[in-house]
Nucleic acid binder design. Sequence first.
DNA 1: TGGCGAACTGAACGAATGTTCAGTAAGGTG
DNA 2: CACCTTACTGAACATTCGTTCAGTTCGCCA
Lengths: 209, 209
Amino acid sequence: MVDRRDLTARAVIRDEALRLFAEHGPDAVTIRQIAAAAGVSAGLVVHHFGSKRGLRDAVDAHVGGVFDALFDAFETDDPDALRRLLAGRGGGSLAETLVAGLPPGSPVPAYLRRVLLAGDQAGTRLFRRWYAASQRITATLVAAGVMRPGEDPAVRAAFLMANDLAVLLLRDQLADVLGADPLSAEGLARWFAEALAAYRDGVLTVDEA
Amino acid sequence: MVDRRDLTARAVIRDEALRLFAEHGPDAVTIRQIAAAAGVSAGLVVHHFGSKRGLRDAVDAHVGGVFDALFDAFETDDPDALRRLLAGRGGGSLAETLVAGLPPGSPVPAYLRRVLLAGDQAGTRLFRRWYAASQRITATLVAAGVMRPGEDPAVRAAFLMANDLAVLLLRDQLADVLGADPLSAEGLARWFAEALAAYRDGVLTVDEA
DNA sequence: TGGCGAACTGAACGAATGTTCAGTAAGGTG
DNA sequence: CACCTTACTGAACATTCGTTCAGTTCGCCA
């Protein structure tokens, strides 16, 4: 955690709002709760962000910056550079790379879950960018001969991306049934080792046609 | 849609609450909105369900019944019966079977998304039942020689299940980027054809070791 | 028919929420 | 020093929410 004294009150409010929004949902968190968590008055929150909606937008923009940095790093057509980026721990996915670049306990994954499931415009925009990156990555890997193209490339890219996001969206429930946080270092390794095996060797043994 | 005149006012309130909860989230929907949608007074809602929390619990129990019926149908160790259940349209998954058994425009998928996101006990219980069904199904298919066991069976069952749920959780965003609702008949066929191909033939063409 | 209970309404209440506002402290600039 | 902008507080306001409650309608049964 960053030393709070190094941050302006505005940044402290934004960070506490992000944490509380991610944990309970924006609707369930009041301005007074955010102010108390940041150690300021409720009036100051409105002073800095205009309204609760303005605070939400500021948090969205702040989180959006994190993802922009992630996607920018993948803006390459060089298959070798791409594989170097993806080969963090053997598996390789956007979600894995994102989590690896976040401090442990970061509220960003939980907030991402809220944004995607809220169905508002911020979630749509983020998803579109993520999908565009997935399409470019799969196309590059196919061109490099590492990945099979598939019958329907648009759906295949979406399929791989949705599977990748699933571990983020279902983190808490997966931790419950598996007994370990899938976003921890060991959990990620376990998860993506199985994913890699499934994608490399297949899962079914017979042709069902 | 069921003819509203065949339902008691209590059932109408419950169904409208389910629809509004699924669309906007329980916190964003007021008792007065539900009452107006059901054509009754706000007092009657409280009269029948005690409180808003009681109404939420009633909706949870009602939706839970839908899933109980689904899971009960899969309570079999006979691989042939299992494959007959799963082979609805060539692909075969719990989510696909669930959606196929729901009327078009049903609020249940969206409500499922809310329940899993909320992280409360109702979501945990539902997820555990779904996971138990997934484990039993994969074990049966492995025993029948249809499915490869994998290194880590617990994670493999969770991986397949999470991928299956992803299309439900990301329905709106996938519809946006793909241009068609993945839960429609054509969308399901397109999605699960690609999933089947990926699981049968694999996605990667080289060994990355 | 008379009465009892369930269904139902509409007004009202208290609590909580987002927002407004007057006022204070501080820090930089002419 | 005087002045202005900015950061910040605490009280207050209007609205909306879940909930309560007295009273009304209506169907069933003795």
